[in-house]
Design a protein around this nucleic acid. Structure first.
Lengths: 183, 183
DNA sequence: ACTATAACGGAGGGTTGCCTCCGGTATCAA
DNA sequence: TTGATACCGGAGGCAACCCTCCGTTATAGT
C-alpha cells in the first residue's frame, strides 16, 4: 500500500528520463505550486513533452508520484526519530515535515480530498505521526485536549507560509509548537 | 495615505458597476486566490470585461483596491478592540484578521514584496497591530523574546491553511497563540 | 552488426484567459 | 425632450498551456 504504482520503465534511457521528470516535477511543484506548467517541467528535465505524458498520462499521475513519494519518506523518518525523547521525537519529525515536503500546500489541501489513494496516504501519514504525538501526550509533554490532526494542520499551514528567512520559520514553528506543550 | 486612489466613478451606473466589481473580486480572490480569472470576475459582477478594465487597467489595480481596502478595515478594527484587556485585544484583532481577510494569502506574500504602496500598507498594518502586541507584552501576557512580525506571519500562515471546519480553525489558532503567551 | 521495437520529442489543434478597441447605450444637464 | 458624452460590453487577436499523434531515434537481444 501507498505504492506509487507508476511503473519505472525498463530501458536505460527511459529510466533516466523518468527520474529526471520526477526531479524536475518535485522542484516545480515546490516553487510554483501544484499547477506548475507541465511543458516547463519537461523542458527542465531535458525531455520532450511527449515523454512526460507517456510516463504520466495525467497531471495527477505526475503529482501523485511526487506526493506519495514524499509521504513515504515522511513515514520512514518517523521510525528514525523514534528513539529520541518523546517531545524531541515529535518536534523533530514535524520539522522534517516542514523542511523536505515539496508538495507542502498540496498536503494540507489533500487532507480534505476524498479519493481512495489520498485516503490511504493520509492514513499512512497519520499512522506514522500519531504514535509520536501520543507518546508525547503520555509523557505529559503535550496537551491532551487537542488532536494530532490539529497539530498537523497547524504545522502544514505554517509550512506554506512565507518567512523572511529560515531562522524565522524555525522560530515561528517553535512558538506554535509551544502552544502544543502541556501546561 | 493608504488611500485606494482608484477613483470611484461619477455616474450612477458606473458606480454600481464599480462596486459590483469590487465585491465580485473580493469573493473571487478569496476563493480562487490572487490569480482568479478576470473574465470570471466580470461575469460574476454582471458586467462586461471592458468595464472591468476601464475601472482597473491592470489586474494589480483591481487586486490593490481589494487589498488596501481590507488593510484599511483591519486598521480600523485595531482601534475598536483597544479598550479590551491587553491579551484579549490582541487575540480578538488577530481573529478578525483571520475571519475577514479575503486576500489572506496575498497579505503574507506581500510582506516580502518591495513596492512603495505595499510598504505603506505593511507599515499601516504594523502600526495598527504593534501597539496591541506591545501592550500585551508590557502586561506580562505575551513573550518578550519574539517580534510582532513573527506573530503576524504565524497567524497569516494559519489563515491560508485549510481546516475541517471553523471550530478547528479557531482551536488551532488558539493553540498557536498559546505559544505566544508568556510562560 | 542487425533488427525489432520501445521510447523519443515536438508540431499542431484545442481551450482558456488576457487585454484592446470601438459601435452602441444610458445618464445627466439644460 | 434632447443632445453631448461618459460609459458599456463583447468580439477578436494574442499568448500560454494542454494533450495527441506520428515520423524519427536509441536500445537490447541475437
Amino acid at each position: 500500500m501507498l505504492q506509487v504504482d507508476v511503473r519505472r520503465p525498463q530501458r536505460a534511457d527511459a529510466r533516466r528520463n523518468f527520474d529526471a521528470l520526477l526531479g524536475a516535477a518535485r522542484e516545480a511543484f515546490a516553487s510554483k505550486g501544484a499547477d506548475a506548467s507541465l511543458e516547463e517541467i519537461a523542458k527542465q528535465a531535458g525531455v520532450g513533452i511527449g515523454t512526460l505524458y507517456r510516463n504520466f498520462p495525467t497531471r495527477q499521475d505526475l503529482f501523485n508520484a511526487v506526493y506519495f513519494g514524499e509521504i513515504e519518506e515522511l513515514c520512514l523518518e518517523a521510525e528514525e526519530v523514534a528513539d529520541l525523547p518523546p517531545w524531541e521525537a515529535l518536534t523533530t519529525w514535524l520539522q522534517r515535515f516542514v523542511q523536505y515536503a515539496a508538495t507542502k500546500r498540496a498536503i494540507i489541501e489533500s487532507l480534505n480530498r476524498d479519493s481512495e489513494r489520498f485516503t490511504a496516504a493520509r492514513e499512512a501519514m497519520y499512522a506514522a505521526g500519531t504514535p509520536l504525538f501520543e507518546r508525547a501526550q503520555k509523557a505529559g509533554e503535550a496537551r491532551t485536549d487537542i488532536s494530532f490532526d490539529d497539530v498537523l494542520r497547524m504545522v502544514s499551514g505554517l509550512t506554506a507560509a512565507g518567512f523572511v528567512d529560515d531562522s524565522q520559520r524555525e522560530r515561528v514553528l517553535e512558538i506554535a509548537l509551544d502552544g502544543v506543550r502541556a501546561r
